[in-house]
């Protein structure tokens, strides 16, 4: 566990080790997902580059969340789900070559609503590391502190780590959840509309944290807030009805979109 850490934490060694080309962290090809026979994703082929923040925008029901949850196979928790196609993480097929529990450790997710577990602040963050067999108390304490700092919430909670996590405000809870995700030392962090229930100041703090986290992690940000994607993401993908309409540098998508539907969506003509 301890030896693994430096490897996972250092993106440069990953680039050398991985078979992936052009610094791609995730590559999907012809990814199709159905829920109870209803198709949620249609032939999604895209790449997520190492250490970028990729924004995914689109109206509701466009498959954004399905896309995220497929990347760490959380969609399989729904009994009626079916997946076809390929997803490569560091060149490895996530459906065939990686154990799904290990995959979820490597590809963490932050949900739309802040979902602390009914535990103390400390135990929330320590939950993941303990799952993965870290028993050394000092190591766990370090991880918790480091994760809370990365999620920009350490100063607010350092004196109340034993308090129940539900006592925190919504914005604090969401940053706690980010810390909890970081504590298992993932390579990739997925965000599913992480600020949808939060006030502008909490949103700002989370966006700042994301920019800071770029140094270490590859991040995918699904958001209903088009402006948020414009603010934080390096590249942006536009999803509509389960299809990816366009993917490009964020400045390009927002200044000169190639597809009319993208233009309509970001200029607020529909959705």
């Amino acid at each position: 566990m301890v030896e693994n850490k430096s490897e996972i934490r250092n993106p440069k060694s990953e680039i050398k080790d991985s078979k992936s080309e052009q610094g791609n962290k995730i590559v999907t090809s012809k990814l199709n997902v159905w829920y109870d026979g209803k198709q949620a994703l249609k032939d999604i082929s895209l790449n997520v580059e190492m250490n970028e923040i990729m924004g995914v925008i689109g109206p509701s029901n466009s498959g954004k969340t399905s896309f995220l949850e497929t990347l760490n196979r959380l969609n399989e928790l729904y009994p009626g789900s079916r997946t076809e196609g390929q997803v490569l993480l560091d060149g490895k097929d996530i459906f065939k070559e990686i154990d799904k529990h290990l995959l979820r450790k490597k590809v963490g997710i932050v949900f739309a609503l802040p979902l602390p577990l009914p535990l103390s602040i400390f135990d929330n963050v320590a939950y993941g590391p303990r799952l993965h067999g870290i028993k050394d108390k000092k190591k766990i304490t370090e991880l918790v502190e480091q994760s809370l700092k990365s999620a920009a919430i350490w100063d607010e909670v350092k004196d109340r780590l034993k308090e129940n996590a539900f006592k925190l405000s919504g914005g604090q809870q969401q940053r706690l959840c980010i810390a909890r995700t970081l504590a298992v030392e993932p390579d990739v962090v997925l965000y599913d509309e992480p600020c949808s229930g939060l006030d502008p100041i909490s949103t700002l703090k989370i966006e700042e944290a994301m920019r800071e986290l770029k140094k270490i992690y590859t991040q995918v940000l699904v958001t209903n807030n088009v402006k948020q994607s414009a603010r934080v993401s390096d590249r942006t993908a536009f999803f509509l009805m389960g299809e990816m309409i366009e993917l490009g540098a964020t400045t390009q998508i927002f200044t000169s979109p190639k597809d009319k539907r993208t233009d309509d969506y970001i200029s607020g003509r529909f959705g």
Partner: peptide
């Protein structure tokens, strides 16, 4: 149900989830 999803999303197995978040509550 969300507690289970959170636990799974952190890489927990089903039994770890049952023991870690379901049973205590």
């Amino acid at each position: 149900q969300q507690f289970r999803e959170v636990s799974f999303s952190l890489g927990a197995s089903r039994w770890q989830t049952v023991r870690g978040v379901v049973l205590p509550n």
